[in-house]
Amino acid sequence: MAESMQERDDVLICSICMETFRKPVMLPCQHSFCRECIDSYADKFKHVQTDENSGSTGYEDVHQLIACPVCRAPTSLGREGVAGLPPNFHLAEIVERFSSGVKVEDDIPYCSLCEEGNHVKAVKFCTNCGVFYCEECLVICHPMRGPLKRHELISPLEYLSQETSQGQVSRDHQSTQQPSCPRHGRSFDLYCEPCRMVICVGCVVEHQGHAMRDIPSAAENDKPAVLSRTNELEKVLGETKESLSGVLRLHSKIQENQELHTQEVEKAYCAALEALQAWRQHSLDGIRTRYSQWSVECSAILKHLQLQAQEMERMVQASNDLLASMDVEFLQGSTDFTKTYV
């Protein structure tokens, strides 16, 4: 644990001022320094370059080139100088948590090889294998001999301090294993042009007499063809997306027209139903009016005929009574009957 604490302190210390990081920034080589420290270092480096090139003019117009204080890798600062270097937010967060008393060990990933249920915090991370190792798994699975001797082992905190959102894998998703030769366990270093395959140093014997190139130059040689094909695919992709957009618009238009025509049919149906109901009501009202009038007229005629029938019945009865009377009465009443009922 003491070794782990010392290791943690070393990771959180700037290699220029030898103090805890303050506003750390990251160089392209992944080494971090305090912004003020690398700024002062760049100024001194610039003075050294100016002294060495005192006969030259217009040096200020050239992007300043510095060497990393740790690995001496060249770095161009660009037009913005140190101000253009990206901040190492993750390292700053670790420093802040350490300074506030929060346990930084909580961020350290577990060993990638330990069995489930027996997780142990990692003590090393292999940048070649992309695997976190605890002390026991490191001795058993990654002995520093043979091909593994060239692998770079760093502390988990150093790995976390170098982690960026652009290219590094987060601690929740550990980095995948770098490609290596399955036969010899070595990293691929060469490209065999006739066989069109990458090989390691151990495979060279099997490819004797073949034209070989280093992997970076071979990749650069093949990139134009891939780029050309990519441009073609992007063009086809653009056309496909344009067609897809057209079909989507057509589909949307079909749905809109379906809804519009459905509404028109429903509207026409409601209008026709309303007109039919109005015609029905009008027809029924007309029928009631006409037949009611006819009924009144018929009732009046019926009443008149009934009165007339009653009168006729009375006349018939009077006539029958007259006929049944004595002759003298008949003769006396016939004249009046004729006058009355003519």
Rank of each mutant, 00 (worst) to 15 (best):
G101V: 02
V226I: 12
Q178S: 06
A318F: 02
Q263P: 10
R171P: 07
L307I: 11
E158D: 13
K339S: 13
L157E: 05
K44G: 05
P86D: 04
H282L: 15
D51P: 00
P224Q: 08
Q64L: 11
Q64D: 06
V25F: 01
P179V: 05
Q166R: 14
S4N: 14
R8I: 06
I301M: 13
S245V: 02
L113P: 05
G117Q: 03
V48G: 01
S15V: 03
R196T: 13
I287G: 14
A300C: 11
L322G: 09
K303T: 12
A218M: 05
D321K: 12
L305C: 10
L302W: 03
D336Q: 15
I199L: 06
P28A: 06
H31C: 08
K235R: 14
S56E: 10
R79K: 03
Q177G: 09
R249S: 13
T338Y: 15
E96I: 07
L307C: 09
V131R: 03
K23F: 00
D10N: 05
V62H: 05
H184D: 01
I66V: 08
C37V: 03
P216I: 02
L153Q: 12
A122L: 01
P24H: 01
H119N: 12
K44N: 06
T127S: 07
M26N: 06
S54D: 09
P87C: 05
K46A: 00
E19F: 00
T75E: 01
F21A: 01
H304W: 07
D9N: 09
G117T: 01
R150I: 07
K103M: 03
P24I: 00
H90V: 14
P87F: 01
F45W: 02
Q263S: 15
R249H: 08
P147Y: 01
N53L: 04
P224K: 09
G84F: 00
E7T: 04
V48K: 05
L237Q: 14
D172Q: 11
C17P: 00
H261E: 15
F330A: 12
V104K: 06
S325I: 03
P179K: 07
C141H: 13
A272Q: 15
Y41V: 00
Q6H: 09
G167R: 11
L302F: 03
M315L: 14
E311F: 06
S155F: 03
Q306K: 12
A309P: 06
T230I: 09
T57D: 04
L284W: 14
D189H: 08
M1E: 15
L248R: 11
R290L: 07
